[in-house]
């Protein structure tokens, strides 16, 4: 594999769920890539398809769900063509996932050592004793004090932050090339979130890990990732280097999203709002899925799906009118803005 080729390339995938009330068009032509060693953010509001993306990659969709189109190329191989057995050797060992709900991801009836050594000895050629040593070492590296003793405890004997560290340790014990972390800190308090983010940052750097960080928290994305993909209604609406997307957002949705969050830095009495709600994905809006809520929408937006427009090698936006919006702020103003923020 050459250095330049992405580790993971998602090419135009469509994932759907077949339910009694209709077909849920959860992922509708999603494309993005992840380079080896790179932390990438997947951002968007509830129901926009973040988790389904992770599940599609690992092919762990429920029975009523299926990726019906597209390619998921990992290290040059299309995962969608692999047999179940081949897929099993990808999960955990090549691509590990930390699931959204930390409570359900650890089995309450088994001790932590059993839950960790089981996966380790399954995927790595080590005996029981070696597996236990690896587990303890991993727990220590995520900052679990007294790991040697505490590894024999049950999950409920740990706090939420500790359990999340254990999950990170377990995922990393298999030395995967790619970690998909689905809202790893959402359930945690802010001081504990800070601890866990620190661990994630440290491990990512130390292991040179590629990471897909799924979150709706824009602060977490800004802090951890170098590149970001903004999701809306099952599509990627904007992508680019995190800094550029945050400082110079191009898509009306990205813009509105940033304006609608209250900020610690700025004093403002009124927030910008996006009218309406996030769309349901059974019979979603035609054309641009954001059009019923977009203040720039015109007739074409409700008719035609906007194509990706590439603004640079890693910078793209999917909007019919992005050029006409008065979004381009010059460098000078930009620097000004950031400086003001930092001073306050």
């Amino acid at each position: 594999m050459s250095e330049k080729k992405p580790l993971l390339e998602i090419q135009d995938i469509y994932t759907q769920f077949f339910t009694e009330s209709g077909v849920v068009e959860a992922l509708d032509g999603v494309s993005f890539d992840v380079t080896a060693g790179e932390p990438v953010g997947i951002v968007g509001e509830s129901g926009c398809g973040k988790t389904v993306t992770g599940h599609s990659i690992l092919r762990i969709l429920p029975k009523n769900g299926k990726t019906i189109k597209g390619k998921i190329i990992y290290k040059g191989i299309n995962l969608l063509n692999l047999t179940h057995n081949q897929m099993r050797s990808i999960r955990g060992k090549e691509i590990a996932m930390i699931f959204q709900d930390p409570m359900t991801s650890l089995n309450p009836i088994f001790r932590v050592d059993d839950q960790m050594t089981e996966v380790i000895s399954l995927h790595r050629k080590v005996n029981k004793k070696e597996a236990l040593d690896i587990a303890i070492e991993m727990l220590e590296s995520v900052g679990l004090s007294d790991a040697e003793k505490r590894i024999h405890d049950y999950p409920h004997q740990f706090s939420g932050g500790m359990r999340q560290r254990i999950l990170i340790a377990r995922a990393l014990a298999l030395q995967p090339s790619l970690l998909i972390a689905d809202e790893p800190t959402t359930a945690l308090d802010v001081t504990i979130q800070a601890q866990v983010l620190e661990i994630i940052k440290e491990m990512q750097k130390k292991l040179g890990l590629a990471m897909m960080l799924i979150t709706h928290n824009l602060g977490v994305v800004a802090e951890i990732t170098k590149r970001v993909h903004i999701f809306y209604g099952g599509r990627v609406v904007e992508s680019g280097p995190t800094e550029d997307v945050f400082i110079n957002p191009q898509h009306p949705y990205t813009r509105a999203l940033f304006d609608s969050i209250p900020s610690i830095e700025k004093d403002k009495t009124r927030l910008e709002t996006i009218p309406g709600n996030v769309p349901r994905l059974i019979n979603p809006p035609k054309g641009c899925r954001f059009h019923p809520r977009c203040k720039y929408a015109t007739e074409i937006c409700s008719r035609e799906r906007p194509e990706d427009v590439w603004l640079g090698p890693k910078r793209r936006v999917a909007c019919h009118h992005y050029e006409e919006l008065d979004l381009d702020v010059d460098e000078e103003t930009m620097r000004e803005r950031v400086k003001i923020k930092e001073e306050v």
Binding site: V190, A194, A222, T242, I264, V338, K341
Partner: peptide, 23 residues
């Protein structure tokens, strides 16, 4: 410590973070 723990939605702000020990 609470204030310093909040991740700021601006990649250019680097926080001098006070990390609290324990729970």
């Amino acid at each position: 410590s609470l204030l310093s723990a909040i991740p700021r939605p601006d990649p250019r702000i680097k926080m001098d973070r006070i990390l609290l020990e324990g729970d």
